[in-house]
Design a protein around this nucleic acid. Structure first.
Lengths: 235, 235
DNA sequence: AAGTGGTCTAGACCACTTG
DNA sequence: AAGTGGTCTAGACCACTTG
């Protein structure tokens, strides 16, 4: 199976929603209609709709239909913003130190997360992002070579990995965990912080509509960074 | 249909996990076995397993089987879940220590956030939530008396502030920041952690459709808690 | 009455892991 | 080769909503 059919249908719907063809509140084709259009069983069309509903992109009502969910309804809790833009929006000077950019083999659990086979390497980058010359974030990132074949050829002094990846493999979904941790000695040196300073660590697996694209580990000094977000609820 | 069969199967599995009959890492019956035991089709048994996997309770591997997931604390950023339910869903024992519950005058900036006038008091509660007897969260909360007049009469051994507030003033919106901080001496004692342990602090202003309801400060020990979440994007 | 989503069946073929 | 989960089919009956 080249690509699962329910994924194809999800992708189709996402494209319609992203492009604005289907606006907030618009009614989608019914399960039966989608099944006819995609020549699949109703259960398969249904799976696409169900998963998009779980992702907060659609809402559904028995007897009525499926609809494009309100944009603000559930998403954008933590909008993933570009760190460079964030810093520049504060009117501050952004700079970056590139520490590494290379092909790298990853350990088993990470390989699994990235859906890499045994022995396949990932592309790896390690950067420090600075605000007014002060380190604000260590970014370590593993990227899938087959999704982003030219990753290693980029110059991250000119474009951040996040912006580059958004261009070549638009973010459709991400899964992340946020923790408070102590930095390693090496990280403390890079961030120019004392060993006792608590840090915020974000581990994020990102995916485009085609599937997993990269895994990023972002480390912020606790005294210089605060993560903010708005939540909006239905119920 | 009295109760959907896939719900019955989910409940059965949850009971097994909660009771400790099935421990972290234990292998579950296969889809086919469950289908036989519950006299249902494989697809129905499969649905129960799939949903529990999405909820983070199971992990599954093709060709190998389904397993009870690691209990490592994890919760969603998107969904504000009840901490008691979160703990109990992990099959752990929840308990709570109530440290304070009183009328209290707040400082200027907080009063402004709560839209309180000069001289008006807020209701204040301070609790420690424990998982298996270990402190997991210090919850300090300021509540608007005119929105929640009976807050001080509640018994938070029976119902968490979050659940109570959801009942009397359903959450419509929230604004929060997440930081990595060091705990104060007093907080370290309450959380039973060393002074050097980084903590995750969530500061959350919640509002119902009527307006601001409460301000909560939640403090988690970094070694016992991880905030997890799924993000979905428009762009 | 016709259309919608919600649940369910009894099969099928597949990819993957293990003995 | 046997067992596992992943995908899919072509039906079915149901509860719910609307004309």
């Amino acid at each position: 199976m080249a690509q699962a059919k329910f994924l194809e249908i999800k992708h189709y719907i996402l494209t319609k929603v992203d492009s604005g063809d289907w606006q907030e509140g618009d009614k989608l084709p019914s399960e039966n209609q989608l099944a006819t259009v995609f020549s699949c069983s109703r259960m398969t069309a249904r799976r696409a709709l169900t998963e998009l509903t779980e992702q907060g992109i659609l809402t559904r009502s028995q007897g009525i239909g499926s609809f494009v969910a309100s944009n603000k309804a559930q998403s954008s809790v933590l909008l993933i913003r570009d760190i460079r833009q964030e810093i520049e929006l504060r009117g501050h000077i952004y700079s970056v130190k590139q520490l590494m950019l290379a092909k790298q083999y990853v350990d088993r659990p990470l390989a699994e997360q990235l859906s890499l086979n045994e022995g396949e390497p990932a592309f790896y980058s390690k950067l420090v992002h600075l605000e007014e010359g002060m380190p604000l974030q260590i970014e370590e990132r593993y990227v899938l070579p087959n999704r982003v074949p030219h990753y290693l050829a980029q110059n991250f002094n000119e474009i951040t990995p996040h912006v580059y990846l958004s261009q070549v493999a638009p973010l459709a979904q991400a899964e992340q965990t946020i923790e408070a941790v102590l930095a390693t000695d090496c990280q403390c040196t890079l961030l120019q912080i004392p060993k006792t300073e608590p840090c915020l660590q974000i581990s994020r697996l990102t995916a485009s509509s085609q599937g997993v694209v990269s895994f990023a580990k972002l480390l912020y000094p606790g005294t210089r960074f605060k993560l903010g977000g708005q939540l909006v609820f239905d119920n």
